[in-house]
Design a protein around this nucleic acid. Structure first.
Lengths: 97, 97
DNA sequence: ATTTTTAGTTTGTTTTTCAAACTAGTTTGC
DNA sequence: GCAAACTAGTTTGAAAAACAAACTAAAAAT
């Protein structure tokens, strides 16, 4: 079947996580606050979904400091980039675009 | 923001419902059993999601008979087609494809 | 006539999503 | 210098969604 939903990665497909991945695919690393802005998510929600993406191995959260303030930099991993490319392929097929 | 996840219709975006809508966009009406086959969903799951799509006004379930057996034909509504087109637009933008 | 198959729906559990509340430290205003 | 407000997140509990097992109901097959 050409339009198989089986090939859609559910970790990436979730609405907020999709936004994060799409953004990271063009800009990585990105700070937590910047992701907050572009996704318009709440802190808690973003935090949870980043954890999920990290557990899946698609991103890495680098905990550091910017001056004296803590700052988390979110990196797209190689695995994440591969998964993203696969996701795009699957969606193109499914959506016929 | 160009890649806003806000524009992604959540009713359509759900994995199984996305499969249903994608299929219906190229073939409507379609019988319940055929949808079962192409989506590889369980009956209960498909039934639930069709109800959700119908409540949203995106499909219509025509309950009729094929010979003596009951047969549900699932139609994409005009509203459903519009929503699908919007969804495609939003995804193209988001995925940059 | 009993078993199997078709065509679904209902229901209860599991998973996911979400945002309010919380922690911890920093900067700013008085 | 200290109280208030802000930054940067995490934890947690409630609500929603997903899922499949169990059920209903009728037809077809044996």
């Amino acid at each position: 079947m050409s339009a198989s939903i089986k090939n859609i990665n559910d970790i990436i497909h979730g609405r907020l996580r999709l936004g994060v991945m799409a953004y990271l695919s063009t800009a990585s690393p990105v700070s937590f606050p910047e992701l907050l802005k572009v996704t318009e998510a709440t802190n808690g929600n973003l935090s949870t979904h980043l954890t999920k993406l990290e557990t899946a191995g698609f991103i890495h959260q680098e905990k550091g400091y910017k001056g004296k303030r803590p700052q988390t930099l979110v990196h797209l991993t190689d695995e994440g980039r591969s998964a993203w490319i696969e996701y795009l392929k699957a969606m193109r097929l499914m959506l016929d675009i």
